[in-house]
Each structure stands twice: as C-alpha cells, then as structure tokens.
C-alpha cells in the first residue's frame, strides 16, 4: 500500500490563482520530485521538468455506474507517466494535477479511486482548493461548480488576501469554514511562502484532521454541513449498504463526506471519505482523534434535510434493541 504514489489535486475557479500556488509550491525542495499535469498552459509558466498537458474529455464507462465517470485523458496521461517511470525514463514520487477552473473535480477522484489499473499504483493525496479573496464570494454565489470545488477540498487557500479588504477576507474565510468544516484554511498573500506540507502532509498528518469542529448549523444559502454520530460500533455491511444506497440516490447533492467510523470486529478507527458518489478506499488510522472512539461523519450536502439523513442512518445502520446510531445536532 505504501508503494502507491500520492496524487494531489489543485482546484479552484477561473483566475483564483491555482497556477501561482502550484508554481510557488513546486519551488519547495520537498516537492522537487512531483510530476505535474495541467489542463491548460496559462500565462504563468510552470518551470518544471515533468510538466504534461491533459485535455478535457470525460467518459462515462459502459458499466453505467455513475461513480465510474472517469477522465479518459487523465487516465491516459497517468498511465503514460507511470509507464515511463517503470521503464526508468523519468523519476517522480508524487503527481500534482491542476484542474481547469470550470471543472467539478470529482471525475479526477473517480479516475484514481475507481479505475482498476490506477488504484493499485496511485492514491489520493491532498485536494487543495484556491479561492480568490477578491472574487471568491461572488463566484460561490454564481457558480455551483465553485461550491463543489470548495466542498471537495482537504485544504482551502484564500489567495490574493493582500488585494482585498481584511473584513472581506474574514467574511469569506468564515463562509468557507461553514461550508467545509473538515478542510484546513490558509489565508495567503503574495509574499508568504505556502507550506510544502500542504501537499506532502496529506494522509500523514495528525488524526485530528479526521475530526471536524462542530459543523455550522446554517451557513446561509450554501450547502450545509452536519454530523452523523454513533455511540456503538457499526456493522460494516449495514453501513456499506446504506451509504451506497444514499449516494446512489443523492450523490449529486452530497458534496462531501468525511470522518471516522467504529466498526464491529475492527480494533481501531476507520477513516471514510468521499466526494459526491466517489468513496475512497477505507483507511485504518493509528488512533482515535482526541481519544474519542465514536463514529463521527461530517456530511456536506445541499437540498437534503439533515434530520431525514440521521433518521435514515438510524433505520438502516442502527439495530433494534441497541443504540448503535444516535442522532446528534
């Protein structure tokens, strides 16, 4: 499992500053071994040895499963890179992908998580979303895809903070925290170097990254984050059945799912995360976040009543005579 190379994704709306952030990150020695895939070559040159271009086709596999929407071009680009690496033609230890500003990043995750040929050689690294301090609020208002980008992120960079009034930066940061309480947030100006750990630390950080702060109850008109909790360990089959059913029916409106689950017969916590209909392979963690051995899943969703989801979780995953699944605000 450790041999799988991490794939980091830089997403964000048009003009948010993705290429600038990537260029600054790639200047760090910790990221010297990254192969980079970009959607388009912008005005800001990326001076990097392993820069490759990907084009834009999205493919729905004939199996018909919606989570099998893969980016055919990205798959081909990744396979070509891995082939050259295997032949000793190039060396790299991670891959960074910059998505186009108008793209929902989910097909990128699906390509890594669901493609039979790639998922044994690659794993998801960090998903970093860049939001422009000047235009970010208006973009979130006007473009659904920018909401999806921010909700999918592990880390959100608010860029161009030196160009926007401090109160606008604070308001945008508060809105992003409410929209995606599981993401770390960094306000970045043009001078301060971004920490390289923002890419390299994904999956290697403290277990607290799986434990969100209490989600905001009502983050305005954006999607809302809410918590599913259970006191007793869950039956894995019941949980898998329910979550598969929920995502099949409502995957378009469930922008993000992230948390830790206690499973009957499994000693430690199991981390679960997904974006829309794509769920990554479950991951065993060393220890419970904050020593609290309970199931806690943060769901970021639109148009879905959180109380109905909690009721469904209890009905499908909880069992008669036990209090396996308890709702929590």
């Amino acid at each position: 499992m450790s041999a799988r190379l991490p794939v980091d994704v830089i997403t964000g709306f048009l003009g948010a500053g993705k290429t600038t952030l990537l260029r600054r990150l790639l200047a760090r020695p910790e990221l010297a071994g990254a192969a980079v895939l970009v959607n388009e070559f912008g005005e800001i040159g990326l001076d990097h040895l392993l820069l490759e271009r990907i084009d834009g086709d999205v493919v729905l596999l004939k199996s018909g499963c919606v989570c099998c929407t893969v980016r055919g071009d990205l798959k081909a680009a990744l396979e070509a890179l891995l082939g050259r690496r295997a032949r000793g033609e190039i060396a790299f230890d991670r891959v960074a992908i910059e998505t186009t500003g108008l793209a929902d990043p989910t097909p990128v995750f699906a390509t890594i998580a669901a493609d039979a040929a790639l998922k044994h050689r690659l794993r998801m690294g960090a998903v970093v979303c860049v939001v422009d301090a000047l235009n970010g609020a208006a973009t979130l208002d006007a473009h659904d895809v920018s909401l999806r980008q921010a909700a999918a992120a592990d880390r959100i960079v608010v860029s161009k903070t030196d160009l926007a009034p401090p109160e606008a930066c604070s308001a945008l940061a508060a809105r992003l925290r409410a929209l995606n309480p599981v993401a770390e947030l960094l306000l970045l100006d043009a001078e301060t170097p971004p920490p390289a750990l923002w890419l390299t630390g994904a999956g290697e950080g403290p277990p607290s990254r799986w434990r969100a702060d209490t989600p905001a109850a009502e983050p305005g008109h954006d999607a809302r984050a809410f918590l599913l909790e259970a006191e007793a360990p869950l039956d894995w089959a019941r949980f898998g059945l329910w979550l598969s059913m929920l995502l099949n029916a409502h995957g378009d409106d469930i922008l993000r799912l992230k948390g830790v689950v206690a499973i009957e017969g499994v000693a430690g916590p199991v981390a679960i995360q997904g974006v829309q209909r794509v769920v990554h392979a479950p991951e065993h963690l060393e220890a419970w976040p904050d020593g609290d051995a309970r199931t806690r899943l943060v769901v970021i969703a639109r148009t879905i009543d959180p109380e109905r989801v909690r009721r469904s979780f209890r009905a499908f995953v909880g069992r008669a005579g036990t209090n396996a699944a308890a709702a929590s605000a």
Partner: peptide
C-alpha cells in the same frame, strides 16, 4: 479484510 476493498471493485 477491510483492506480487501483494494483488491475488489467497490469500497464496501
């Protein structure tokens, strides 16, 4: 066995 999901088709 949970990690068996890497060898099979679906996370569950």
């Amino acid at each position: 066995g949970l990690c068996g999901s890497f060898a099979h088709g679906h996370w569950s």
